[in-house]
Every structure is written in structure tokens, then in C-alpha cells.
Design a protein around this nucleic acid. Structure first.
Length: 199
DNA sequence: ATATGGATGCAA
DNA sequence: TGCATCCATATT
């Protein structure tokens, strides 16, 4: 049922910008309501453990950010703006406090269930709305805080090798929606993919 | 352009 | 305890 090899903690135990870039094209796999969901990562952002005030872990471990200081390859989910969840994966060696935010994915399998989870009726236009943003994709994939702190594994959530993004289609820009460290080039996406979030 | 929503963290 | 802030979205 799973296409490709599952990523191990070692994949995530590296420099965060490199992990963020290498996650492009990988696939998130997860079973929700007894349905397999699969989605290809097309946009990510790195949040660093050093000199990055936009990173939740910037001021050291707290109740919320303790997961970020745990082992690499764990799931970090947080709640924001009173409505939304954000999906991240912990990076670097244990104790660092860094992560990659998943900002957009492209549906690969289980699209009907994604529409249902997202509360949308299937049309060609709403298809893009399904997963073209960090909170949208959490809704479409049924991601919530119950996943926070868990290791990547099935059936709850794993990341597998997908269809790689060719180097020439990878773009790097500044991160979206933050007020600090705006200038750092830590957002990665697949050029031309319609699911990449709009500014 | 604007309303929305709750958790978090820090000042008081 | 109070309050500004926060990695966004949907609707006007």
C-alpha cells in the first residue's frame, strides 16, 4: 500500500534547510477513517535552532516546544489563530530545537476523503483549495494535536520517498506570514505546482 | 480589506 | 491575571 521507502530519523537529523529542501517530492502517508491518504510535499519552510527568532524554540524549551527539542523525525503539531493546526517534523540532533513546516501538498490518494475532511464539495476549482496551505492540508489530512510528539510511523503518519522534484524546479524564497527574521531564505517549493500557497 | 478564533508566553 | 501576538483562512 505504501509506495517507496519510509524516511528514518536519520533523514531528519541533518541541517534543517537541507531537510526542508529534500522533503520536496516526498509523500505523507496516513490512514484516516479507515482510508489511506497520500499527498506529495510541494512547499516547506525551515525553522532553525540558531539565530532564528521566528522559530518557536528560539527561547528554549517550554511546554509547547518540548517536542522540538526531542529526537529528530518526530511530529510537531501546534494550534494557531484559534482555528488551525500546523504540521512540522523535528530536525537536527536531539536537543536542538528545530523543525520543518509543511506548507503545501498535492493529493495523490484518498482525494474523496480529503474533500470530506476539508468540508468541500469536489470541483476542479476546490481541488486546489484542498491542500494549498499549511492549515488546509492539516484539515484535508485529518492532522490534529493527537499526533504531536509521535514518531513517524504507520498507520498514523509516515513520510515515504515519492516522485523527486528535479533540482531546476526547486525555488527558495523568504518565509511567509512571519514578523521576525523575515529576510532569511528558508522557504522551498516546486516551481509551477498549483498547490503551492499564494502569498 | 476584514472578521475570526484559542493557545501561548511574558509583563504586571 | 491580563493582553499582545501568532508559521492562516474564508468571506466581503
Amino acid at each position: 500500500v505504501v509506495a517507496g521507502e519510509k524516511l528514518t530519523p536519520q533523514f531528519f537529523a541533518r541541517a534543517t534547510p537541507l531537510v526542508a529542501k529534500d522533503l520536496l517530492g516526498k509523500e505523507i502517508v496516513r490512514k484516516v477513517n479507515n482510508v489511506w491518504l497520500r499527498a506529495r510535499i510541494v512547499e516547506t519552510e525551515a525553522y532553525l535552532c540558531e539565530d532564528d527568532p521566528a522559530c518557536h524554540a528560539f527561547n528554549g524549551p517550554t511546554k509547547r516546544t518540548s517536542v522540538m527539542f526531542g529526537p529528530p523525525g518526530r511530529i510537531y503539531v501546534y494550534f494557531i489563530y484559534g482555528n488551525y493546526f500546523m504540521l512540522n517534523f523535528v530536525t537536527e540532533k536531539e536537543g536542538s530545537g528545530a523543525a520543518v513546516l509543511i506548507r503545501a501538498v498535492e493529493p495523490v490518494e484518498g482525494e474523496t476523503e480529503m474533500f470530506r475532511l476539508r468540508g468541500l464539495t469536489p470541483t476542479s476549482k476546490s481541488r486546489i483549495q484542498l491542500t494549498s496551505g499549511p492549515a488546509k492540508l492539516c484539515l484535508a489530512l485529518g492532522v490534529d494535536k493527537t499526533l504531536n510528539g509521535l514518531p513517524l510511523d504507520l498507520p498514523h503518519l509516515a513520510v515515504v520517498q515519492g516522485r523527486a522534484v528535479p533540482e531546476e524546479k526547486i525555488r527558495v524564497t523568504t518565509r511567509i506570514g512571519i514578523s521576525k527574521a523575515k529576510e532569511l531564505p528558508l522557504r522551498f517549493y516546486e516551481q509551477g505546482n498549483p498547490f503551492v500557497s499564494k502569498k
